[in-house]
Simulated scan of single mutants.
Amino acid sequence: MKWINNFSNLQISYYIYKLNKGDKIICNNKSNYDKSIIILYGITYLFKTLNNKQIFPLAILNKNNIIHLDKYHVNKKINYQLIAFETTYLISFSYKNITNKTHLNNNLLLKIITSQELTKKNYEIMINILKHKYIKYRIIQLLLLLSLKFGVINEKEIMIPFSLSQKNLAIITESNKITVNKIINELCKKMLIRYSAKKIIYITDIYMLKSILP
């Protein structure tokens, strides 16, 4: 509500979007995407595609993260997709409308800068995941990250509280469903994780899981 109140008080136009689980926003050159998006609530992942074929994961984003998109980022060859892991609410606005208002209060500017810093850290986290040469290490690093940021302690397990399909895991780790499925099965057999029918992952031994990383 703070973002909405700030924009309303300063008479800055904005739009609210609701994404259900699995919904996506596609930003391409056919759209007027000289705007910014802030996540009000929920968890999403952002990736870009080149020629609608190559996929490059960029970040897992959540509350108060911000995305700036303009004509320099989106063109005929490159588009961006933001997909919701769970029910998510977004607020979009034109960044130009903010920079053109000389009477902006320091509170809003500080909030935007803070959001940019939070988002930058999530980009850096994704870089650290993808720097691993082997997909197995990428998946383990991803699961550790998600358990740290979003995990819910359930008795002796840590539950990642949203479904993670093999397809999504493959996109995020730049892999494929067959490889991901093989690694998930291996981790399950070693009793390091549980993977439910609803695609919910439970980490059963976080210390042993972490010890696998180089």
Rank of each mutant, 00 (worst) to 15 (best):
I203R: 10
D205E: 14
N107P: 07
N122V: 03
M1F: 05
K120I: 08
K149W: 04
L90A: 01
F93W: 03
L148M: 03
P161L: 01
T173G: 08
W3T: 04
L110D: 13
A197E: 13
L144S: 12
Y207T: 12
Q81C: 01
K177V: 05
H68G: 12
T99D: 13
E117S: 08
E86V: 10
I172Q: 09
N20L: 05
E86G: 10
T179K: 15
T173H: 08
K71N: 14
S165E: 01
N154K: 11
T87I: 07
D34G: 11
E155W: 05
K198Y: 09
Y45T: 08
G151L: 05
N75Y: 06
S147I: 00
M159N: 08
G151E: 06
Y15Q: 13
I127L: 10
E86H: 12
L169F: 05
I26Y: 07
K76C: 01
S175D: 10
Y45R: 14
T87C: 06
K30D: 14
Q166F: 15
N105Y: 01
L61A: 03
I4N: 04
K189T: 09
Y14C: 03
I112E: 05
L146P: 04
L40W: 01
N105V: 00
T173N: 14
Y207P: 04
I67T: 05
F7M: 10
I201Q: 07
N128G: 02
N32Y: 13
V74M: 03
L61G: 03
N185S: 14
I55Y: 00
I25L: 13
N105I: 00
I153C: 12
L10Q: 11
I60P: 01
K71H: 15
A197F: 09
K2H: 02
G22C: 12
H73D: 13
N64A: 07
T49F: 04
L110N: 15
S31R: 14
N185M: 15
S94C: 02
N75Q: 08
A197N: 13
N107S: 14
Y207C: 10
C188R: 14
R138H: 07
L109K: 15
K198V: 03
I83Y: 06
N51D: 15
I112H: 06
I135R: 12
S94M: 02
L209S: 02
K120D: 11
Y207G: 09
S115K: 04
Y137A: 10
E124N: 13
Y33W: 13
Y33L: 11
L192W: 09
I206A: 02
F150S: 08
I98H: 10
K48A: 09
T87N: 13
K101M: 02
K121E: 06
N75E: 07
Y41D: 14
I193L: 03
E86Y: 10
K210S: 12
K30W: 06
T44H: 00
N79Y: 05
I140H: 13
I184V: 11
Y41V: 07
M159V: 09
R194H: 15
N185C: 12
D205L: 10
F93Q: 04
N181W: 01
